[in-house]
Design a protein around this nucleic acid. Structure first.
Lengths: 343, 343
DNA sequence: TGTTAGCACTCATTCCCGTCGAGTGCTAAC
DNA sequence: GTTAGCACTCGACGGGAATGAGTGCTAACA
C-alpha cells in the first residue's frame, strides 16, 4: 500500500497547488513544475493510480483532480513541508504578547486573535473552566443610592449588581459574613443551605426583602455555570474563500460560529496530544464536512486547560497553520515561565 | 409641493409593497390593491408624477418603480402606519427583562438582543461611558501562589491579574492604602503622582519590583480608557436579505460591524431626540449608503447615556422597528422605575 | 518496461441570440 | 380626469454553438 517516491511527490505537488488555487489541477500544470522532469502523460498515469488508491478525486470526467479527505490526511501525516514563519510575524507576536501579559485572563483571547492573525483563518479558543478554583473573596459594595455590586473572586472575577438600598456599613458587615461562609469553598459546593446560613446571620441588620434579593443574586452569581468561555476571532474570514461564495453556505457557517453550545462541544471533543488536524468528514458536525480544523490543547501552569482551534477550508494551508500554533504555544510557554519564575 | 391624498396613498402602497418584496413595483400591482379603485393607467400617470418629484426611481425603462431616499424619508415622516406588536412578543420581552434585571450592567446587552429579536435586524448598542462615576473601592486579592487580582469598582467592575507573589496580609494592607488614596476619585483624575504616593506608603512592606508591577497594572486598569462598549447583535441577519446576496457586499458590511472604532463614531453621531431614522445617503458612512438606521438615544436614571441602533436595508420595515424601539424603551423605563422606587 | 507524443473525446464555461413577459408611455375615447 | 388599447423597451430565461482545459487510450520509442 506504500506510495512510490514519485507518487508522493506528485500528490504533494497537486495538493500544494490546489491549496493555492482552489481549482482542480491538471496533469500539465504539474508536469511544468520542473522539479520532476516528466511529461503530462506520465503524470496522468500516476494521477489515475492515485485516484484509484483514493487520494484524489475527479469532480467530472474532463476536469483536473482535487485531493480527497484521505489525500489531505496523507499529506498532513507524511508530505507536508515545514513552514517558516517570517521573522516580522514572530517579532509582532512577541510584542503583542508582552504588552498584554499583565492581564493573564486576557491572554487566552489574545492567543486566539494572534493565531487568527498569523494563519488568516477563523479561530475558536476555549478558556479554561474554573470549576476547581476556590472562592477567594466576596465583596459587597454600595455603588449608588439604589445599587449594590456583588463581586466574587475566584481565579476569575464575576460581578453582578442588585437594586437595593444598603448602607456602606451594611455592605461591609454583610461582606464579612459572606466571606466567613464562602471563602475557601468551591463554587459548585455552594448550596441553598449555605446561603440560608448567611441569611440567618444577616437578618439582624438587613431588611428581609433586600437580603433575599442580594443573596438570591449571590447564589446565582456564584453558581452561574462556570461556563467554558469561547472566543471566536475573525469569523468573517470565511467569506474570503470561494468555498463560501454561496451566501447560503456562508450564513450556515457563520451561524455555527455564533452558536456557543456547538462550539463548546467542538472544544470538548478529543483531539489528542499536541497539534492535530481533523479533515472534512472526520469532523462530527455536518456543517464542517467541507472544512478542516487544526486543534491544539493547552494547559496553563495555574491549572485549567482549553483548546485552540483553527477553522478553514479543507484546502487550508496546513503547514502554515501547524507552524503558527507551534510558535504560539512556544512563545506563550516561554512567557508564562518567565513571569512565574523571573523577577 | 404638497402631495394629493391620492398620491400619498399610492406612494405608501408602493413602499409597503417594496418593503415586502424587494422587487420594483409595477402599476398593475398597485391598481389591484382594491382600496383605491383606479386602473393601472391612472396609477402610471401618478407614478410618473411621483418620479418627477423625486420620490420614486425607475431602475430601467420597462421596470416598475422603487422608492428613492426621499421617498423613504417622506414615508417615514408622514405615511408610515402604526405597527402593532403582537402580545406574545410583548410578553416574551417582559419575561426576558424581568429574569435578567438584577444584573443592571447586562441590561444594555439584553436590550440590544431584544431589539434584534423583535425587529429581526442587526442592532448596535453602545453602553454608557462611566467617566463620571467615582471609584468606590479597590480590592487586591491573592488568587494563587503567583497571581494577584486587582479589582476596581466604579459603576462597573474592572479587573486585572498581575503575576507577583504577595501574601494575603500584604494584599490587605496594600488594598487599604490604595483605597485611602483612590476611593472617591474619578478614574480620569488619577495620575502617576497619585500612584507614586501609594508607592511611598507601601514601600515598607512590599518589594519594589512587585510593587512596581502591581501599581503599574493598577494605573492601567483605572485609567483604561473608559471605553464606550459596543455590542452588536445578530450581524449575520444581513445575509438573509437579497441586498446582500453578493458575498463581497456582505463581507464589507460584516467587517464594518466588526470595526468597533467605526461603530463608536456611529454611536456618537447626533441623531436627535427620541427615535429617528437615517436613510441611505443620509448616513455618513460610505458603506451604509444602501442601508438605513433607526436610532434611539437612551439615558439611564443612574446617569450615563448611550444609543441603540437598528441597521437594515433601506427597505426595512420602519414601522415595526419604530414600534419595537418604542416598546423597549417603555418597558425598560417601567422596569427601572419599579426597581428604583419599589421594594 | 517505463515514458512520451498524439489524438479523440468529455464536459464546464461562455457567449450569442431569440423568445417571453412585465411594465411603461402615449394616444384617443369616454 | 379617467381609462382602454397599443406599441415599445428591456431584463430574464433558455437553448445552442464555440471554446478550451483536461482526460484516457494507443502506439511508438528508449
Amino acid at each position: 500500500m506504500d506510495l512510490s517516491d514519485r507518487k508522493k511527490k506528485i500528490l504533494q505537488a497537486i495538493i500544494d497547488e490546489y491549496i493555492g488555487t482552489a481549482e482542480p489541477v491538471g496533469s500539465r500544470a504539474i508536469s511544468k513544475k520542473e522539479n520532476l522532469g516528466l511529461s503530462s502523460a506520465t503524470i496522468r498515469n500516476e494521477m489515475a493510480d492515485l485516484e484509484e488508491m483514493g487520494y484524489l478525486i475527479q469532480p467530472h470526467t474532463s476536469a483536473g483532480r482535487i485531493p480527497s479527505d484521505e489525500g489531505y490526511r496523507f499529506y498532513v501525516n507524511s508530505l507536508m513541508r515545514d513552514y517558516k514563519i517570517g521573522m516580522d510575524a514572530v517579532a509582532q507576536l512577541q510584542s503583542m504578547l508582552e504588552s498584554r501579559v499583565s492581564l493573564l485572563d486576557k491572554l487566552i483571547r489574545y492567543a486566539g486573535a494572534i493565531a487568527s492573525n498569523l494563519t488568516e483563518y477563523t479561530t475558536v479558543i476555549s478558556a479554561p473552566k474554573d470549576d476547581d478554583s476556590e472562592i477567594k473573596k466576596v465583596d459587597v459594595v454600595a455603588v449608588e443610592s439604589h445599587t449594590v455590586m456583588l463581586i466574587v473572586v475566584t481565579r476569575r472575577v464575576r460581578s453582578a449588581s442588585v437594586n437595593v438600598n444598603l448602607s456602606g456599613e451594611g455592605c461591609e458587615r454583610l461582606a464579612q459574613l459572606i466571606n466567613k461562609s464562602l471563602a475557601g469553598m468551591k463554587p459548585r459546593e455552594v448550596t441553598r443551605d449555605t446561603i440560608e446560613e448567611i441569611k440567618d446571620g444577616a437578618k439582624g441588620f438587613i431588611k428581609d426583602s433586600a437580603l433575599d434579593k442580594i443573596l438570591g443574586c449571590l447564589y446565582d452569581t456564584v453558581t452561574a455555570d462556570a461556563e467554558t468561555e469561547i472566543y471566536v476571532t475573525n469569523a468573517n474570514s470565511i467569506l474570503r474563500y470561494p468555498e463560501f461564495a454561496d451566501v447560503e453556505k456562508a450564513r450556515d457557517m457563520l451561524s455555527f460560529l455564533d452558536d456557543k453550545e456547538k462550539l463548546k462541544k467542538l472544544a470538548a471533543a478529543d483531539t489528542g496530544e499536541g497539534i492535530n488536524a481533523t479533515i472534512g468528514k472526520e469532523n462530527d458536525f455536518e456543517i464542517l464536512q467541507d472544512s478542516s480544523l487544526v486543534s491544539m490543547n493547552y494547559t496553563l501552569p495555574s491549572g485549567g486547560a482549553g483548546k485552540l482551534t483553527v477553522i478553514g477550508p479543507k484546502r487550508m494551508n496546513y503547514s502554515k497553520v501547524f507552524a503558527s500554533l507551534d510558535l504560539i504555544s512556544n512563545e506563550i510557554e516561554k512567557l508564562v515561565n518567565y513571569y512565574m519564575n523571573g523577577s
